[in-house]
Computed example of a mutant assay.
Amino acid sequence: MDVTSTSVLLVDDDPMVRNGLRMVLRADPGIVVTGEAGNGRQAIDQTRELRPDVVLMDLQMPVMDGVAATRELRRLPDPPAVLVLTTFHLDTYIVDALAAGAAGYLLKDIPPTEIARAVQLAAAGESVFSATVTQRLVQRVANPAADPATRAARDALASLTEREREVAEAVAAGKSNATIASEMFMSEATVKTHVSRILTKTKSQNRVQVALAVYRSRA
Protein backbone atom coordinates (compact mmCIF):
# COMPACT_ATOMS: atom_id res chain seq x y z
CA MET A 1 0.00 0.00 0.00
CA ASP A 2 1.21 3.49 -0.84
CA VAL A 3 2.23 5.24 2.39
CA THR A 4 0.26 8.28 1.26
CA SER A 5 -2.96 6.29 0.78
CA THR A 6 -5.86 6.34 3.21
CA SER A 7 -6.70 2.83 4.42
CA VAL A 8 -10.37 2.02 5.06
CA LEU A 9 -12.24 -0.77 6.82
CA LEU A 10 -15.82 -1.31 5.61
CA VAL A 11 -18.34 -2.35 8.27
CA ASP A 12 -21.87 -3.34 7.21
CA ASP A 13 -23.90 -6.50 7.71
CA ASP A 14 -25.07 -6.46 4.07
CA PRO A 15 -22.43 -7.94 1.71
CA MET A 16 -24.01 -6.15 -1.25
CA VAL A 17 -23.58 -2.78 0.46
CA ARG A 18 -19.94 -3.57 1.26
CA ASN A 19 -19.35 -4.59 -2.34
CA GLY A 20 -20.84 -1.33 -3.60
CA LEU A 21 -18.78 0.74 -1.19
CA ARG A 22 -15.63 -1.12 -2.15
CA MET A 23 -16.23 -0.36 -5.82
CA VAL A 24 -16.88 3.33 -5.08
CA LEU A 25 -13.78 3.75 -2.93
CA ARG A 26 -11.49 1.85 -5.28
CA ALA A 27 -12.21 4.49 -7.91
CA ASP A 28 -10.23 6.93 -5.75
CA PRO A 29 -6.48 6.33 -6.18
CA GLY A 30 -5.82 7.81 -2.74
CA ILE A 31 -7.94 5.23 -0.90
CA VAL A 32 -7.22 1.55 -0.21
CA VAL A 33 -9.90 -0.77 1.22
CA THR A 34 -7.91 -3.03 3.53
CA GLY A 35 -10.73 -5.11 5.00
CA GLU A 36 -14.41 -5.70 5.68
CA ALA A 37 -16.54 -6.67 8.67
CA GLY A 38 -20.16 -7.75 9.04
CA ASN A 39 -20.73 -6.60 12.61
CA GLY A 40 -19.24 -4.42 15.32
CA ARG A 41 -17.29 -7.20 17.01
CA GLN A 42 -15.61 -8.14 13.74
CA ALA A 43 -14.88 -4.46 13.16
CA ILE A 44 -12.93 -4.26 16.40
CA ASP A 45 -10.97 -7.43 15.64
CA GLN A 46 -10.21 -6.27 12.09
CA THR A 47 -9.15 -2.84 13.29
CA ARG A 48 -6.69 -4.31 15.76
CA GLU A 49 -5.21 -6.45 13.02
CA LEU A 50 -5.27 -4.05 10.05
CA ARG A 51 -4.92 -0.62 11.73
CA PRO A 52 -7.04 1.30 9.16
CA ASP A 53 -7.03 5.08 9.05
CA VAL A 54 -10.82 5.23 8.72
CA VAL A 55 -13.62 2.83 9.64
CA LEU A 56 -16.77 3.31 7.54
CA MET A 57 -19.42 2.15 10.01
CA ASP A 58 -23.05 1.06 9.68
CA LEU A 59 -25.22 1.33 12.81
CA GLN A 60 -27.74 -1.50 13.00
CA MET A 61 -25.86 -4.81 12.90
CA PRO A 62 -26.00 -8.16 14.71
CA VAL A 63 -23.66 -9.17 17.56
CA MET A 64 -22.57 -5.56 18.24
CA ASP A 65 -24.14 -2.41 16.80
CA GLY A 66 -22.25 0.48 15.28
CA VAL A 67 -22.52 2.82 18.27
CA ALA A 68 -21.06 0.26 20.69
CA ALA A 69 -18.35 -0.62 18.18
CA THR A 70 -17.48 3.05 17.67
CA ARG A 71 -17.15 3.54 21.40
CA GLU A 72 -14.78 0.56 21.67
CA LEU A 73 -12.74 1.58 18.64
CA ARG A 74 -12.19 5.08 19.97
CA ARG A 75 -10.75 3.59 23.15
CA LEU A 76 -7.99 1.78 21.26
CA PRO A 77 -4.44 3.18 21.22
CA ASP A 78 -4.05 5.41 18.15
CA PRO A 79 -7.72 4.85 17.17
CA PRO A 80 -9.03 5.19 13.62
CA ALA A 81 -11.47 7.88 12.59
CA VAL A 82 -14.97 6.39 12.54
CA LEU A 83 -17.31 7.65 9.85
CA VAL A 84 -20.93 6.53 10.21
CA LEU A 85 -22.73 5.69 6.97
CA THR A 86 -26.31 4.62 7.55
CA THR A 87 -29.94 4.95 6.49
CA PHE A 88 -31.03 6.10 9.97
CA HIS A 89 -31.29 9.80 10.79
CA LEU A 90 -33.24 9.78 14.06
CA ASP A 91 -31.93 12.18 16.71
CA THR A 92 -31.02 9.40 19.12
CA TYR A 93 -28.88 7.58 16.56
CA ILE A 94 -27.06 10.77 15.58
CA VAL A 95 -26.34 11.99 19.11
CA ASP A 96 -25.37 8.53 20.39
CA ALA A 97 -22.95 7.94 17.51
CA LEU A 98 -21.28 11.32 17.87
CA ALA A 99 -21.09 10.98 21.65
CA ALA A 100 -19.37 7.62 21.10
CA GLY A 101 -16.66 9.42 19.14
CA ALA A 102 -17.72 9.22 15.48
CA ALA A 103 -15.97 11.79 13.29
CA GLY A 104 -18.97 12.21 11.02
CA TYR A 105 -22.44 10.98 10.17
CA LEU A 106 -23.54 10.37 6.58
CA LEU A 107 -26.72 9.00 5.08
CA LYS A 108 -26.51 6.34 2.38
CA ASP A 109 -28.36 8.50 -0.12
CA ILE A 110 -25.36 10.80 -0.64
CA PRO A 111 -23.61 10.72 -4.05
CA PRO A 112 -20.88 8.04 -4.30
CA THR A 113 -18.17 10.64 -4.96
CA GLU A 114 -19.02 12.33 -1.66
CA ILE A 115 -18.28 9.13 0.24
CA ALA A 116 -14.67 9.10 -0.94
CA ARG A 117 -14.31 12.80 -0.13
CA ALA A 118 -15.75 12.24 3.34
CA VAL A 119 -13.29 9.40 3.98
CA GLN A 120 -10.36 11.64 3.08
CA LEU A 121 -11.66 14.46 5.26
CA ALA A 122 -12.17 12.13 8.22
CA ALA A 123 -8.64 10.78 7.81
CA ALA A 124 -7.37 14.37 7.93
CA GLY A 125 -9.17 14.98 11.22
CA GLU A 126 -12.08 16.91 9.78
CA SER A 127 -15.81 16.46 10.53
CA VAL A 128 -18.35 15.45 7.89
CA PHE A 129 -22.16 15.48 7.98
CA SER A 130 -25.01 14.99 5.55
CA ALA A 131 -27.11 18.15 5.24
CA THR A 132 -30.13 16.44 6.83
CA VAL A 133 -28.03 15.32 9.76
CA THR A 134 -26.62 18.79 10.33
CA GLN A 135 -30.12 20.27 10.47
CA ARG A 136 -31.37 17.68 12.95
CA LEU A 137 -28.24 17.99 15.06
CA VAL A 138 -28.58 21.74 15.39
CA GLN A 139 -32.27 21.41 16.26
CA ARG A 140 -31.48 18.76 18.85
CA VAL A 141 -28.71 20.54 20.71
CA ALA A 142 -30.45 23.89 20.51
CA ASN A 143 -33.21 22.55 22.76
CA PRO A 144 -32.05 22.53 26.41
CA ALA A 145 -34.97 20.33 27.44
CA ALA A 146 -33.83 17.64 25.01
CA ASP A 147 -30.17 17.72 26.01
CA PRO A 148 -29.07 17.76 29.69
CA ALA A 149 -25.44 18.50 28.70
CA THR A 150 -26.13 22.18 27.96
CA ARG A 151 -24.77 23.53 31.26
CA ALA A 152 -21.63 21.38 31.03
CA ALA A 153 -21.02 22.63 27.51
CA ARG A 154 -21.34 26.25 28.62
CA ASP A 155 -18.87 25.68 31.45
CA ALA A 156 -16.41 24.02 29.06
CA LEU A 157 -16.64 26.85 26.53
CA ALA A 158 -16.25 29.41 29.31
CA SER A 159 -12.83 27.91 30.11
CA LEU A 160 -11.51 28.81 26.65
CA THR A 161 -9.53 31.94 25.88
CA GLU A 162 -11.09 34.43 23.49
CA ARG A 163 -8.95 33.17 20.60
CA GLU A 164 -9.71 29.54 21.42
CA ARG A 165 -13.41 30.33 21.44
CA GLU A 166 -13.10 31.90 17.98
CA VAL A 167 -11.36 28.78 16.70
CA ALA A 168 -13.98 26.55 18.35
CA GLU A 169 -16.75 28.51 16.64
CA ALA A 170 -14.97 28.04 13.31
CA VAL A 171 -14.62 24.30 13.95
CA ALA A 172 -18.34 24.14 14.71
CA ALA A 173 -19.01 25.85 11.39
CA GLY A 174 -17.22 22.97 9.67
CA LYS A 175 -14.17 24.95 8.61
CA SER A 176 -10.87 23.18 7.98
CA ASN A 177 -7.61 24.12 9.69
CA ALA A 178 -6.40 25.69 6.45
CA THR A 179 -9.51 27.86 6.16
CA ILE A 180 -9.33 28.92 9.81
CA ALA A 181 -5.66 29.82 9.41
CA SER A 182 -6.40 31.94 6.35
CA GLU A 183 -9.37 33.75 7.87
CA MET A 184 -7.71 34.39 11.24
CA PHE A 185 -4.23 35.20 9.87
CA MET A 186 -2.52 32.33 11.68
CA SER A 187 -0.34 29.45 10.57
CA GLU A 188 -1.93 26.01 10.34
CA ALA A 189 0.45 24.87 13.09
CA THR A 190 -0.97 27.55 15.39
CA VAL A 191 -4.51 26.50 14.54
CA LYS A 192 -3.64 22.88 15.34
CA THR A 193 -2.25 24.01 18.71
CA HIS A 194 -5.46 25.89 19.49
CA VAL A 195 -7.59 22.90 18.45
CA SER A 196 -5.52 20.59 20.65
CA ARG A 197 -6.04 22.87 23.66
CA ILE A 198 -9.76 23.13 22.90
CA LEU A 199 -10.06 19.34 22.78
CA THR A 200 -8.37 19.09 26.17
CA LYS A 201 -10.37 21.84 27.86
CA THR A 202 -13.74 20.64 26.55
CA LYS A 203 -12.84 16.97 27.13
CA SER A 204 -13.69 16.25 23.50
CA GLN A 205 -12.37 13.30 21.50
CA ASN A 206 -12.57 15.04 18.15
CA ARG A 207 -13.79 18.10 16.25
CA VAL A 208 -17.34 16.76 16.13
CA GLN A 209 -17.62 16.81 19.89
CA VAL A 210 -16.18 20.33 19.94
CA ALA A 211 -18.96 21.33 17.56
CA LEU A 212 -21.53 19.68 19.83
CA ALA A 213 -20.22 21.64 22.80
CA VAL A 214 -20.42 24.91 20.86
CA TYR A 215 -23.99 24.26 19.71
CA ARG A 216 -25.05 23.24 23.22
CA SER A 217 -23.48 26.34 24.76
CA ARG A 218 -25.67 28.50 22.51
CA ALA A 219 -28.90 26.94 23.83
Results as ranks from 00 to 15, higher is better:
Gly125Ala: 10
Ala68Thr: 10
Gly20Glu: 00
Arg26His: 11
Ser130Ile: 12
Gly101Asp: 09
His194Ile: 05
Val67His: 09
Ile44Trp: 04
Gly125Tyr: 10
Glu162Met: 11
Gln120Leu: 12
Glu126Gly: 12
Ala189Arg: 11
Val128Asn: 03
Lys175Met: 14
Gln205Tyr: 10
Met184Cys: 01
Thr6Asp: 01
Val82Ala: 01
Arg154Gln: 15
Thr132Gly: 15
Ile44Pro: 02
Tyr105Thr: 08
Gln205Ser: 10
Leu85Glu: 06
Leu21Arg: 00
Ile180Asp: 05
Glu72Trp: 08
Ser187His: 07
Pro111Gln: 15
Val138Met: 14
Thr202Met: 03
Ala181Tyr: 01
Asp53Cys: 01
Met57Gly: 00
Leu106Arg: 04
Ser127Ile: 07
Gln46Trp: 02
Tyr105His: 15
Arg117Leu: 02
Ala100Met: 06
Ala152Thr: 14
Thr92Glu: 15
Gly35Ala: 05
Leu50Ile: 05
Pro29Thr: 14
Arg26Gly: 04
Gln139Asp: 14
Thr86His: 03
Ser182Cys: 04
Arg154Gly: 12
Ala103Gln: 08
Ala152Trp: 07
Glu166Asn: 10
Asp45Gln: 13
Pro112His: 07
Leu90Cys: 10
Asp58Glu: 06
Val32Ile: 11
Gln46Pro: 02
Ala118Trp: 09
Glu114Gln: 15
Leu107Pro: 01
Leu106Lys: 03
Pro111His: 11
Lys175Arg: 14
Val195Arg: 14
Gly38Tyr: 04
Met186Phe: 10
Ser204Thr: 13
Asp91Glu: 12
Ile110Ser: 05
Ser187Gln: 04
Arg207Thr: 13
Leu157His: 01
Val210Lys: 09
